[in-house]
C-alpha cells in the first residue's frame, strides 16, 4: 500500500554504484552536486579504493588540462590580421562613399539641403495661409455713376437700390458681393455686364419682351412647297 513512498526511499538508501559514481564524478569535482549527493560521493571516495582512484585521476587530468602550455601565434599572424582588418575598414569606408555618391550624385550636400529647406518653408507658408478667397477687384466693383435697374428678376427696385447703396457705401473689399442674396447678386452682375461700354452685350440691350396677358403664343404657319 505504501509502495509509492517506500520505493523511492529504499532507492535513496541503496548504496551508490560505481557507475553512478562515475556519472556524477565530474559534477562533484566542479562543485555542481546537491548536498545529499555530495555526501554520498565523499563516502564512496573514502570507502571504495576504485572510486578513490577514479576520483584522483580525474582531478589530476583536470589540473593537467588546465596547465597545458599556452601557445602563441606566429608574427605573420599578427601582421596578416592587422592588414586584413585595415582592408575591411577601408572597404567599409569605400562602400559608405559609394552609397553617398548614389544618394547625392552631382549636387553638393549643402545645396541640396538648402533647396529642401526652401521647399519645406514654402509648403509651410501655403499651409498656414490657406486657399486664397475670391477677391472683388476694382473692375468688378460697382462703378459710382451707373444706375442699377433690375431687369427681369422680380425684385422690388426700391429695395434693390437700397441694398446696392448700402453695399456701395462700404469700402470695396473681399467678400463684399457676398453680402447680397443670390437673386440680388445675379441681377447686379447682369446689369453691370450690360452697362459696361466695352461689353459686346451693350449693343444688344433690348427691352424685355413682354406678352400682354391673355394673348396666346403665336403658332408658326406651316410652309408649303
Amino acid at each position: 500500500m505504501w509502495d509509492w513512498v517506500s520505493k523511492p526511499l529504499r532507492r535513496l538508501q541503496e548504496p551508490m554504484t560505481v557507475d553512478s559514481f562515475s556519472d556524477k564524478l565530474s559534477a562533484y569535482i566542479d562543485g555542481e552536486l546537491p548536498e545529499a549527493d555530495r555526501v554520498e560521493m565523499e563516502r564512496m571516495i573514502s570507502e571504495s579504493p576504485s572510486c578513490s582512484a577514479m576520483y584522483e585521476k580525474m582531478v589530476m587530468l583536470r589540473e593537467r588540462l588546465g596547465n597545458l602550455p599556452e601557445l602563441q601565434p606566429s608574427a605573420e599572424f599578427e601582421f596578416g590580421l592587422r592588414s586584413q582588418i585595415l582592408m575591411a575598414a577601408a572597404n567599409e569606408m569605400r562602400m559608405r562613399h559609394k552609397v553617398k555618391q548614389v544618394l547625392f550624385p552631382t549636387v553638393g550636400r549643402s545645396v541640396l539641403s538648402g533647396a529642401i529647406a526652401a521647399m519645406l518653408a514654402m509648403g509651410v507658408s501655403v499651409l498656414l495661409q490657406g486657399e486664397p478667397e475670391n477677391d472683388v477687384t476694382a473692375s468688378q466693383a460697382v462703378p459710382p455713376g451707373i444706375e442699377l435697374v433690375p431687369s427681369d428678376v422680380s425684385i422690388d427696385p426700391g429695395v434693390m437700390n437700397e441694398r446696392v447703396a448700402t453695399v456701395r457705401a462700404q469700402p470695396v473689399d473681399r467678400g463684399a458681393l457676398k453680402q447680397l442674396s443670390k437673386e440680388e447678386s445675379f441681377a447686379l452682375s447682369r446689369r453691370l455686364y450690360q452697362a459696361r461700354a466695352d461689353s459686346p452685350a451693350s449693343r444688344f440691350i433690348t427691352q424685355p419682351r413682354t406678352r400682354p396677358a391673355g394673348q396666346a403664343r403665336p403658332v408658326p404657319v406651316p410652309v408649303s412647297f
Binding site: 565530474s26 585521476k57 589530476m60 587530468l61 593537467r64
Partner: peptide, 22 residues
C-alpha cells in the same frame, strides 16, 4: 563534459601513456 573527461581518462589509460596522471 563528464563523458569527455571519462573518455579522455580511458584513452590515456588504454594507450598506457604516462602523462603524469598516474
Amino acid at each position: 563534459v563528464n563523458r569527455a573527461r571519462l573518455k579522455l581518462q580511458q584513452k590515456l589509460k588504454n594507450e598506457g601513456r604516462d602523462v603524469g596522471l598516474g
